[in-house]
Amino acid sequence: MIAVAGGKGGSGKTTTTVGLARAFSRRGAPVVAADADWDLPNLAELADETGEPVATPEGGSADGTAERTGRPSVTRVARGERSVPVGRREPVVLDAPDRPREHDAATVLADLDDVVPADTPLLLDCPAGASPDVAAPLRAADRCVLVTPLRRPALRDAAKTAAIARRLDCPPLGVVVTRTRSVPAAVPELFGCPLLGRVPSRPPVPLAAAAVETAYDAAATALVEAHAGGDRWRIA
Rank of each mutant, 00 (worst) to 15 (best):
A29T: 05
E45F: 13
A55Y: 01
G87S: 10
E58D: 15
S73A: 09
S61F: 05
T69N: 12
G19Q: 07
T56G: 11
G70D: 05
P97S: 10
L94A: 13
V86P: 02
A44R: 06
A34C: 13
P85A: 04
G51C: 10
L20N: 06
V31H: 05
T50G: 13
W38S: 11
S61K: 07
T65L: 08
A29I: 01
E102L: 06
T56C: 13
V93K: 04
V84C: 08
A33N: 02
T75C: 13
L20S: 09
V93L: 13
A78C: 08
R88G: 06
G80Y: 11
A96P: 08
E67H: 13
P85M: 04
E81F: 12
R79Q: 14
D63C: 15
A47R: 02
R71W: 10
T65W: 00
A110E: 15
E102K: 00
A118G: 15
L112N: 05
A36V: 09
R82A: 10
T56I: 09
A106I: 03
A29V: 03
A34T: 11
T56Y: 02
V54H: 05
S25A: 15
A21Q: 01
A36H: 01
P57N: 09
G19P: 12
D98K: 06
L43P: 07
S73R: 02
G19N: 09
A55N: 09
P85G: 04
S25G: 15
D63M: 10
R27L: 15
V74Y: 01
V84M: 07
D63L: 10
D37R: 00
A23P: 03
R27G: 13
D37V: 03
T75K: 02
T69Q: 10
A55Q: 10
T69D: 07
G51Y: 01
P72D: 04
T65H: 04
P53E: 10
L40W: 01
P100I: 04
R99W: 04
